[in-house]
Design a protein around this nucleic acid. Structure first.
Lengths: 227, 227
DNA sequence: ACCAAATCTTAACATCGTTCAGATCCATGC
DNA sequence: GCATGGATCTGAACGATGTTAAGATTTGGT
């Protein structure tokens, strides 16, 4: 665990921690793997015993960050009080606040998914959103007919505001302004979904990359006779 | 214009063109400035007579791409036919299609705005959206009370779907599926905005980075006695 | 106590962005 | 027509980076 001279003890975690700090300080690409090693006090090549490449380190960091975000959002939804939409609003404000307060890390978490095949250990934020929408239907806050695919509508709205803020394309003065903007966005989206005309059953299905990866992974682990 | 031996003629444009192609092939960071110069047949240092750095080249490319997107979206909205919301839906499907068809370039255009102070020559996509929302109010498709700040709600929704697709976090099978998903998203958002309860006059104001930059720039050019 | 595996170091390689001194071309004045 | 200055490009170089290979050190199991 602690460093004892030649061997560091937990270099993998240390690399992830230092990488996260460097991303926060200077952005996703504003630092080098060598510099991270210097901060830890280890030689540049030591990192390669724990990660296949710099990209792999960044990918693993993105996965870790997404898991932490998922846990945080699940907790935020759990402790929300108010009308039937408040759990989803708590989820959304948490999502947007996180992107606004830690834009570089947020950009990392969203963009690195494409490059690496790293699997996020649950709860992925997307999973939390799906669970919250299911619960909203049960609680009578959304009609069942509007439920299929609703996660992609709500996710798009919340994720859009989050990325606009993280990328600096839109600016808000403080967290209160962000909360109000988020609440307006989510309530409008849910109202719009509630008023939808019934759709055809042959509606095209959007697919979450994370959900598909998880399913593929579990299929590979289950007994092979499954087809 | 054409290359005539020692001098290239229009190296600046050639660099932008090659950089765009390389981004499309290998992503924002999957290529080097040297490689771009080799493709053009010019020495590595020639680029520095036209751009201060590699980042400056990428920033200029992002600005060029955003202008082209703005022009394309304005044209798409102009030629839309159907109900009162169709112009905005044409804008949105154009936006989302573009991100899905050219994800690496889209990622570049959205992310490079933070790094560089490059000014996008109009029409910026955000300007087009603002104009379309104003027109929608005039046409009776959105009540005036819901108009203030509505561009950030709609932009967040559309931009969110676009970035989820560009980053590969959500997948759709084909363009028709993307169009249907986009239309559902935009119609739900507009319906939700239309049903909003009246908001306080002291609503916090979101600000577009592009709009502010343009205003600052024009203020610097106008006669100094202004305020 | 021993050995294999895991961990870390040192040294090196190719490549990258960038700089600088000098070569080449073009346009303008005469 | 021709010199001249500015714009444009080349060639060589520098430090830093990601990555690899070979060898040193430590740990853990038996």
């Amino acid at each position: 665990m602690a460093k004892s001279g030649y061997h560091h003890g937990d270099l993998r975690s240390a690399l992830l921690d230092v990488a996260e700090a460097l991303v926060r300080e200077r952005g996703v690409d504003g630092w080098s793997l060598r510099e991270a090693c210097v901060r830890i006090g280890v030689s540049p090549s030591a990192a390669y015993h724990h990660f296949a490449s710099r990209d792999a380190l960044v990918g693993a960091l993105a996965a870790r960050v997404l898991t932490q975000l998922g846990e945080h959002l699940a907790h935020a939804a759990e402790h929300a009080a108010g009308d039937v939409q408040q759990r989803l609003i708590a989820f959304s404000t948490g999502y947007v606040r996180w992107a606004m307060d830690d834009p570089a890390v947020a950009r990392l978490a969203f963009s690195a998914g494409r490059a690496t095949a790293e699997t996020v250990v649950p709860p992925h934020p997307h999973d939390v959103l799906v669970a919250e929408l299911d619960r909203l239907v049960e609680a009578g806050g959304l009609k069942a007919a509007a439920r299929p695919g609703a996660e992609f509508i709500v996710w798009a709205a919340v994720h859009g505001l989050a990325t606009l803020l993280a990328d600096g394309l839109v600016q808000l003065d403080d967290q209160r302004a962000a909360d109000l903007e988020t609440e307006r966005l989510v309530r409008a989206t849910l109202t719009g979904l509630a008023q939808e005309e019934p759709r055809s059953t042959a509606w095209p299905t959007a697919r979450s990359a994370h959900t598909e990866r998880l399913a593929r992974q579990q299929a590979a682990l289950s007994p092979e006779g499954d087809g």
